[in-house]
Design a protein around this nucleic acid. Structure first.
Length: 593
DNA sequence: GTAGGGTTAG
């Protein structure tokens, strides 16, 4: 049966949907109440939708009031309200409304997949796993398990709640998986640190696409895959994604090109980053920032400054990220005067922004490297905003390098105050003590760490060979070729010793627990294992690229330098904060250890 | 326009 609507209702509806602003809607509301037209379900729904969803800024209180005045809301009315709550600051209310709706046994309101969908959105917004599990139960009893869209939303819920295994199970149950469901799972893997699984899935999509034709990677997939490559430093895989982008007509997408520039930089391949950047038909501030930050990370400080100046010349206004890249370029390349000059210009308002916590962080790093520790401390104290733990850690790192015990202790007390102490902080303090021979203090810190039950994060290094990513941890024995790898490492150690390499493990107490247990047994850091594996399985002359999750230590840094000379290989190690391009026995980095 | 799924470039 077609619903007939009188011409005046029609007029009213068009008035509602074209209404602008809250006062306008209030007037309409008054008319609706006066004429009793508010009782008309359709008219009411149009009004509620406009009020709850289209009006910007939204007024959830007004919507809630209007909704509660309705005596017999329909499923659609409830759905609109649940949806409104899902984008409000009180998503929990949406979930409660859903539960009330589904509990109303006496009512004849039918189960509706959209109710579940909007309620899931509410749970996603508030990361409410329990609520999500309840909705999942309802989806099963309501018989909605064949609804792919609904299941995709459910996956997103599990992803948000860090339950990637649940998300995988739901994915397996989706009757018809398409590009979006794959993308949700990939983003779930990225969010939950299952980066290698994300790449595996990208490959699977490409293969499946030939079979079913509806899971072809799109620009979102490529963006996610490139992010995965960036975080792993997986250059070969990144190039495969790049080829796919070019081969499928996505080569002009600005966001993809910007991400490509960033990916190549973060994989240590500045020439490829440059190539993409230069070929871009369209560039925005993000493109420039990606380039500047990439140059900074790889130790090309002067080039980063040149790029920044060229950007200004072209009339592109920098953003906060741009300045972060620029200042970090100065600090990483030891360009103290330049860094200070840019920071002064930033403070003067020339770039139409105020320095943020990241900008201050770069300056603390810069001053720390310039051995101006007290100035760095004063700078932190002068900040308008509250210094975060990262900024204190930067200073702590500088204290360790320069053996400044007194300031190091003070910095740790700030971290304690912030309730942000980590094992790594105490390791830095401990190393500061040991660098000046305060052994009783070293023991004290060790027992303090035990007392506080602080454990160091395991170091992990990855190396990619022909698109496959291999992962190593300290003293890794999980690799099938472990004997060969350890054999190779022993050989490398011998060769390096001849060349003058001396293991330097005393100053870096990176692996406290095992070191104590094993006495003086040899401990192999993950990056050494990864480098040895690379030497073992690649032909002579091949560049070795290793990515590490933590900062690399002095010893491994020296190890990489010597390997580059003795084995005539370019060794590129990316650690948590920068690149070490080692060639002919020396490193591009400016870190003075 | 009474409707629902993924991305937040640096």
């Amino acid at each position: 049966m077609l619903k007939s609507m009188s011409s005046s209702d029609d007029h009213l509806v068009s008035l509602i949907v074209s209404s602008t602003g809250k006062s306008h809607l209030r007037q309409i509301h008054a008319v609706l109440l006066r004429t009793s037209l508010i009782r008309n379900s359709d008219v009411f729904h149009h009004f509620l939708s406009r009020l709850a969803l289209s009006l910007i800024p939204r007024d959830i209180n007004y919507s809630r009031r209007v909704f509660s005045q309705r005596t017999n809301p329909s499923v659609s009315h409830c759905n609109t309200m649940i949806r409104a709550f899902s984008v409000s600051e009180t998503p929990g209310e949406g979930f409660r409304l859903f539960r009330a709706l589904r509990r109303r046994k006496s009512s004849s309101l039918p189960a509706n997949p959209l109710s579940s969908s909007f309620a899931l959105k509410c749970c996603i917004k508030s990361a409410d796993l329990l609520g999500g599990l309840q909705i999942h139960g309802k989806i099963v009893t309501d018989g909605f398990l064949s609804d792919s869209l609904l299941l995709t939303t459910l996956m997103d819920l599990y992803s948000t709640c860090e339950k990637s295994n649940h998300a995988c199970k739901v994915f397996d149950e989706i009757p018809k998986r398409d590009t979006v469901s794959y993308n949700v799972l990939i983003s779930c893997f990225l969010r939950n640190k299952r980066t290698r699984d994300a790449l595996f899935l990208f490959d699977k999509m490409k293969k499946n696409e030939e079979v079913d034709g509806c899971s072809k990677p799109d620009n979102v997939t490529c963006l996610l895959a490139l992010q995965a490559c960036s975080s792993l430093g997986a250059l070969d895989f990144g190039e495969k994604v790049h080829d796919f982008i070019e081969g499928n007509g996505l080569g002009d997408a600005l966001n993809l090109n910007n991400t490509l520039v960033s990916m190549y930089s973060r994989c240590g391949s500045m020439d490829k980053a440059y190539k993409v950047f230069n070929r871009m038909r369209e560039k925005n501030v993000v493109s420039w920032t990606a380039m500047i930050s990439g140059l900074a990370m790889n130790g090309f400080g002067r080039e980063a400054i040149e790029a920044f100046e060229e950007m200004l010349k072209l009339g592109v206004s920098p953003e906060e990220h741009t300045l972060t890249g620029l200042l970090s370029a100065c600090s990483h390349s030891g360009l103290v005067d330049e860094g200070m000059m840019f920071f002064d210009r930033l403070k003067s308002g020339e770039f139409k922004m105020k320095p943020n916590v990241h900008h201050y962080g770069c300056m603390v790093d810069l001053l720390g490297r310039a051995r101006l520790l007290d100035r760095a401390y004063d700078l932190i104290k002068s900040m308008e905003m509250k210094p975060d733990s990262t900024i204190w850690r930067t200073l702590l790192g500088a204290c360790r390098v320069q053996g400044n015990v007194e300031l190091g202790e003070r910095v740790v007390s700030h971290l304690v105050e912030l309730k942000a102490e980590e094992a790594g902080d105490y390791v830095l303090l401990l190393n500061t003590y040991s660098s000046v021979g305060k052994w009783e203090k070293v023991t004290e810190v060790r027992s303090l760490m035990k007392e506080k039950r602080l454990f160091t994060k395991p170091g992990c290094s990855v190396i990619e060979l022909q698109g496959t990513v291999y992962e190593f941890v300290v003293d890794d024995v999980s690799h099938p070729r472990k004997e060969e790898i350890y054999g190779k490492l022993a050989e490398i150690n011998q060769q390096l010793k001849i060349a003058g390499y001396k293991a330097e493990t005393a100053s870096e107490l990176h692996n406290l627990d095992s070191e104590e247990e094993k006495g003086c047994a040899l401990t192999y850091h993950s990056e050494k294992l990864a480098i040895a594996f690379g030497i073992l399985v690649t032909p002579p002359g091949t560049t070795i690229r290793v990515t590490k999750n933590l900062r690399t230590c002095v010893d491994c840094h020296n190890f990489a330098k010597f390997v580059s000379g003795v084995y005539d290989r370019v060794v590129i190690v990316r650690d948590r904060s920068r690149f070490h391009h080692c060639k002919d026995g020396s490193c591009s980095c400016n870190d003075f250890w």
